[in-house]
Design a binder for these strands. Structure first.
Length: 291
DNA sequence: TGCAGTGTTGCTTC
DNA sequence: CGAAGCAACACTGC
């Protein structure tokens, strides 16, 4: 998400939405009709691009001539396979083809079901193979209220160890599941939870209530470390995720356990295993991640 | 060929 | 009521 935000900020900030196209209206959850969405978004300008948990948020204004339309935000949740791309395409036989040669031609970038035409001739696409992604247009103040329900952002300065301990206090269940609960801590998914638990030498099935202060501290440090590394390296792209220019992130170099079942643990040489934790695969080293 | 599995989340069911 | 199950969907690899 951090990588997506950074890439978008460079390219689409201060541009206006000229029009929007889709072949999968279900992606637009709010307002209910696509035509209404289209009418509302037209001519609104992107004033700020930010993130809360795994939501990408564009704060909009109507621009100097359209002040009465201020106060809206566009929310995009990319879910499993969605990713936002910026470039130029043309529609040929109902499929979007990139105008120029390059990474946007890669197959994973061609599942475009939503296309925003921006001012200045640029375009922003949502490529989404499994079409789970959602897009919503909110009144900014209502959206902010909604987002307050989420847990704290682990990359923010105010995410102190005290705060981490506090949000986990009274929680029960397996630590991996709790880490992935967006209402407890925002932004941690299946990859980074596995990675953080490896760094903290903690077993994914450890009961979160059983973690002592020392274990909590190393988990806290591990979460920050892994997410910072993810943001620095441009994200994990072994599968579908791509940066807004269509290229891959480099987090794969840092990936210690996720999808490494059967391989050797780089820390202790143990054999990496997989198990199901709350219907998700958890990858871990049974030799050095303690229960 | 068939089926489990896939970076998510929210609704339904027990 | 809280936790588990499942659905949304397309595609891959065993």
């Amino acid at each position: 998400m951090e990588t997506t935000i950074k890439g978008l900020q460079k390219k689409v900030l201060n541009r206006a939405f000229v029009d929007v196209w889709t072949d999968w209206k279900k992606t637009i959850k709010k307002p209910k009709s696509f035509e209404e969405f289209r009418k509302e978004i037209k001519n609104k300008k992107i004033k700020r691009i930010w993130r809360r948990a795994k939501n990408v948020i564009f704060d909009l204004s109507g621009g100097p001539a359209l002040n009465r339309t201020e106060g809206y935000s566009l929310l995009v949740h990319q879910k499993m396979t969605g990713h936002l791309l910026v470039g130029k395409w043309e529609l040929k036989n109902d499929k979007w083809k990139p105008v120029e040669k390059g990474p946007l031609e890669e197959k994973i970038n061609l599942y475009i079901h939503l296309m925003f035409y921006l001012s200045g001739g640029l375009m922003m696409a949502l490529s989404d193979m499994r079409i789970f992604a959602k897009v919503e247009l909110w009144k900014t103040d209502e959206l902010k209220k909604e987002l307050e329900k989420l847990g704290p952002e682990p990359l923010e300065k105010n995410f102190t160890f005290g705060k981490f301990r506090k949000v986990l206090r009274g929680k029960k269940g397996k630590v991996k599941q709790v880490l992935m609960d967006q209402n407890v801590i925002a932004g941690i998914g299946n990859i980074y939870s596995s990675e953080a638990l490896w760094h903290a030498k903690t077993h994914p099935e450890k009961n979160v209530a059983d973690l002592n202060d020392k274990e909590l501290k190393s988990l806290y440090n591990a979460i920050k470390k892994v997410l910072e590394l993810g943001a620095e390296s441009g994200g994990e792209s072994f599968s579908d995720y791509r940066k807004p220019d269509g290229t891959k992130g480099d987090f794969d170099k840092e990936r210690k356990v996720y999808r490494r079942e059967g391989q050797k643990c780089s820390r202790c040489g143990g054999k990496i295993k997989r198990l199901k934790v709350g219907q998700r695969s958890a990858f871990y080293c049974p030799a050095c991640q303690k229960l």
